[in-house]
Design a binder for these strands. Structure first.
Length: 101
DNA sequence: GTCGTGACTAGCC
DNA sequence: CGGCTAGCCACGA
């Protein structure tokens, strides 16, 4: 499949199971670009699969939600709805929610 | 074809 | 512990 870097990002993000999270670095690693965490964020920002790609399940390696196009608060509320607790814009027990490769 | 920007990460002071 | 700098990749102008 001649998928572009961005497309690979969206595909990898879509694979995130409900109730689980992934870091930008993790996504970058999935697509064989462990140094492209920045590009991952850039791709998700422009993702044409808006509601299809759970970009809200992608957070920073630090556990902070980071920034989101539709408003971080909106994403935080959505994550909470999936059973993920957010505290002060940060994911609680991030390690427990992280997906396994 | 070159420059600048962005939802990042890791290292250094 | 906190802030800043450098490196990374892709895309738009």
């Amino acid at each position: 499949m001649a998928q572009s870097f961005s497309e690979s990002v969206w595909v990898a993000t879509k694979k995130i199971p409900r109730g689980h999270l992934a870091t930008y670095q993790q996504i970058a690693r999935m697509i064989h670009r462990p140094r492209a965490a920045r590009a991952v964020g850039n791709a998700l920002n422009k993702n044409p699969y808006a509601p299809l790609v759970p970009c809200h399940r992608v957070v920073r390696s630090n556990g902070t939600v980071g920034g989101f196009a539709s408003g971080t608060k909106n994403k935080v509320a959505l994550l909470k709805k999936e059973g993920i607790l957010i505290k002060a814009g940060r994911v609680v027990n991030l390690k427990e929610y992280l997906i396994k490769l």
